[in-house]
Design a protein around this nucleic acid. Sequence first.
DNA 1: TTGAAAGCGCTAACAG
DNA 2: CTGTTAGCGCTTTCAA
Lengths: 347, 347
Amino acid sequence: MPTLSEVARHAGVTPATVSNVLRKRGRVGETTRQRVLDAVAALGYRPHLAARALAEGRAPTLALMVSSIANPFYPEFALAVERAARASGHFVIICNTNEDPLTGRAYLDQIAGTLSEGVLVTNANLDFADLRKTEARGTPVVLCMWERPTEPPGLPCVAVDFRLAGKLAGEHLLELGHRRFGAIVGSKASGIHAARYEGFVDALRAAGVTKNRVRHAADTIQGGYLAARALLEADPQPSAIFATNDLPALGAMHAIADLGLRVPDDLSVIGITDIQLARESRPALTTVAVPTVEVAGLAVELLRELIETSYGQAGRDVRDVTAPVPMRVSSEPKLVVRASTAAPRSR
Amino acid sequence: MPTLSEVARHAGVTPATVSNVLRKRGRVGETTRQRVLDAVAALGYRPHLAARALAEGRAPTLALMVSSIANPFYPEFALAVERAARASGHFVIICNTNEDPLTGRAYLDQIAGTLSEGVLVTNANLDFADLRKTEARGTPVVLCMWERPTEPPGLPCVAVDFRLAGKLAGEHLLELGHRRFGAIVGSKASGIHAARYEGFVDALRAAGVTKNRVRHAADTIQGGYLAARALLEADPQPSAIFATNDLPALGAMHAIADLGLRVPDDLSVIGITDIQLARESRPALTTVAVPTVEVAGLAVELLRELIETSYGQAGRDVRDVTAPVPMRVSSEPKLVVRASTAAPRSR
DNA sequence: TTGAAAGCGCTAACAG
DNA sequence: CTGTTAGCGCTTTCAA
């Protein structure tokens, strides 16, 4: 592979000049510029990104921490992140923590600041202390899906009003006439879906409804399946099931089918997120859509800003503790009515 | 962030020594070794990967080219790749070509050899010429899912006997007693699923069956849905549907349900791959499983070997044209019988 | 407008 | 065993 200096020699100039025309900085005479460009083309020169990273003191990559690509939401989000990152000249390194904080820490220790100049975190079951540490070391970190716009975490983040999402789901069900509910709350361990459930309860409470049983579950189809089976044993049976996530909602639909009941005739089901599968399931899942692409865009943008500014000021020191931690709030979640919800069979 | 020389100073040795103890090469005295290690711990030193990459002339990352993470197979595969890559000390940069050869080329041009020392390609709709070019430039490329073990492509690859997969699917349906088939063949444009269909036809032919209609479709649930609707208009209707991929098979199940028919009572459906969703759909999908994890492992392993050897010999020159292109063959696809197939209602 | 020179942080011979 | 000496390929002041 040809190097900068080879190009320079070929064009009869110095490496510095070549660098200048390539980075479009410093005035360069039009003729030499052309000569350099020709040489670049002739030799098929491509800049060596690792070398550039070293010289610039910053790598052109972002680390995307995810807890498990098994959940189809992550790939969708990763795709959006990749698009946004690329638009800002970054590559994305995918870091699968596998729900294991140690793996997450190992990743952070290795690449943060040395191979990637920023870290994006989805609900990756990471130790906040580890994140703060990498931040303190000078590598900005952004939380991509903070659930409570009103309660900022100690880290930069993009917040989505998930409480509202839960509320919208509840209101939709109530409007259809449902009064007996079963709720499937995911991410039990991290408690990260609590806000969604609170919103749901807000709606019920506002309507004076108290017929609601809760069940915690893993964030999977299987988890939702199991939880729904348990919920459906109640007497009287709920007429609608709310899940804090689409995957468990899908599982609930399976459970209902296995019991010989029909959605939405016998039972309504609603989820949150609007993953692709929600559109493609049968019946298609009614859900509260989260603006995934927008969130990805905001997250990358915020991260970029942090990178830019933290490089300007105070070297790689800890962020000024008195300064507020930046937060972006996405547009509101929106109800998407599809075929899994309907009025209850009888009142 | 502390640097190697800072650690060296702190330990009262030279950078070279620190490097030696860290890389475990060159004999180092036990006492100095300890001293260095202490200094590393005290300063919280972490090697700068970009710097190391430059010095070593090789980056610790692999590029994984995928056409679209939308298809749930890719994330599953990506996960397996990431695991394998990490085990060999590599990070993986995810490159979404979006089915667009130009995007793919741009990725290759930028990172191959400069930020990643190897390229893994799934069915990413890439221009073979581009791949050969990056290979010729000295960056090994491995095709992850070559469909015909008997017909090696011009590039190193891991092959899966997809023709056999199709055959197994056909045989399963035949054994159940089916004689009228509908086939949904995906990836029409690239023709990449042809082998699967050929295998299916092999089975039918061996059984003397000719009642088989084909329909091409996009590799999506939606694509399968549409194709199945078309297939089911035939008279007499097929009693079983074979899809060259799980996603379209799932779509076919939806179409059947929408027509008021039941799987597997009225129609049987079978796919290929065994993505997670196949297990979680209702009814659970019978399919021919591809050893995804194994393939990922073989691909990374092969890539590693190519990296190792191509660095030893002949600098970064084109691979010896007379040498055979290396190929690994995965273990055979296996039939996984679940709930979407059964004997036809009547003969 | 261009060139010279120093250095990013680390590795890799080769000496001592 | 450990230190010296060169770079890896590129960017970036600072001079010319």
